[in-house]
């Protein structure tokens, strides 16, 4: 608008010399070479995106996808897909489970791992999950109380805390944490990893266990506080920590067990880590089947293999901790 006014105010065809120059400039500006170069650049940028789109699935994955048409139907909302928000302690268990379910039931698990507290907060803010697998009850029950789930779900496993010591560390993997206290005093312990106690259940349990041994205060300046328990495991394994208190289910996974030692911390040194599963509101149909599967003997065997305590009575629905 403003441009047009400016132009109109100006006397047309000021001088011939100017006009000749304009013509030259205009010609130069839109010369073929520049246009071609410009087009090529756009094409390249677009191609970069499109090629990426095309190659996103390697052939074997594409064949597998083709078998399940419903999988291709969309990113979300497709039948046969269950979106799970799962505590980080469940990572290796669920990766196993996901292979089994994919092969035997054609069920596709899409899992987001995180600290139970963070996941609960995401669910309360409307994150589109079908199932919430929390590592302890308060977070699960907070979600249930908010009316975001169908009932209070079920307790499917009991978590255990473990001391993990990576190869090369001078710490002794001793579940009673006696050596931890000594190492603190004789300088063998520089950094120690735990998950964040404010929103990660295993972090809360670690804090309680350390408090039970009167180690929490002296250890505090040396703590590496991880976002969730899987990150605490990563810190303990490769982040420069001399050890860490992590989930037993992670400590016995091959990725860690092969590169360090671990020992269980007595279960009564911390509040229970009752892993609770919730069916969230508006959950897709296969989610119900997945929840039912968690209570089967096959699932229990898998849980036990991954270091979880097994719950035999399904006391889930009635139970409320607060």
């Amino acid at each position: 608008m403003r441009l047009r006014e400016e132009r109109d105010r100006r006397p047309r065809g000021k001088t011939d010399g100017d006009e000749g120059r304009v013509a030259r400039l205009a010609r130069a500006a839109v010369s073929r070479r520049q246009l071609l170069a410009g087009t090529a650049k756009v094409a390249f940028a677009t191609a970069l995106g499109l090629v990426g789109h095309g190659v996103r699935t390697p052939p074997e994955a594409r064949a597998a996808e083709a078998k399940r048409v419903e999988h291709i139907a969309g990113r979300t909302g497709a039948p046969g897909v269950v979106a799970v928000a799962a505590a980080s302690s469940l990572r290796f268990l669920l990766e196993d489970l996901r292979r089994v379910l994919r092969k035997e039931d054609g069920l596709e698990l899409r899992v987001s791992y995180g600290a139970s507290g963070n996941l609960a907060r995401q669910i309360m803010r409307g994150a589109p999950f079908d199932i919430f697998l929390a590592a302890d009850e308060p977070w699960a029950l907070a979600v249930a109380k908010g009316g975001l789930s169908e009932g209070a779900g079920l307790v499917f496993g009991l978590g255990r805390l473990a001391l993990f010591v990576p190869d090369g560390s001078a710490l002794v993997a001793d579940g009673t944490l006696d050596d931890l206290g000594r190492a603190l005093n004789d300088g063998r312990l520089m950094r120690f990893a735990i998950a964040n106690p404010t929103h990660a259940p295993y972090g809360r349990a670690a804090k309680e266990a350390l408090e039970a041994k009167a180690l929490w205060q002296p250890l505090r300046p040396r703590l590496l506080i991880a976002e969730n328990v899987a990150q605490a495991a990563q810190y303990a394994l490769s982040g420069g920590a001399d050890g860490g208190l992590i989930a037993a289910s992670l400590a016995r996974a091959p990725a860690l067990a092969g590169r360090g030692r671990s020992a269980l911390v007595p279960a009564d040194w911390h509040g229970p880590l009752r892993h609770r599963a919730l069916l969230l509101r508006k959950a897709r149909k296969p989610a119900r089947a997945f929840l039912a599967f968690l209570a089967t003997p096959a699932a229990r065997a898998l849980l036990a293999r991954h270091g979880f305590g097994v719950v035999h009575s399904n006391d889930g629905v009635a139970r409320n901790n607060d």
Partner: peptide, 18 residues
Amino acid sequence: REAAWVSGLGSWQTFWRI
């Protein structure tokens, strides 16, 4: 741009071509 307007290009044409 002034020169383009002077040679009779509209502001839309000036935008696209100059």
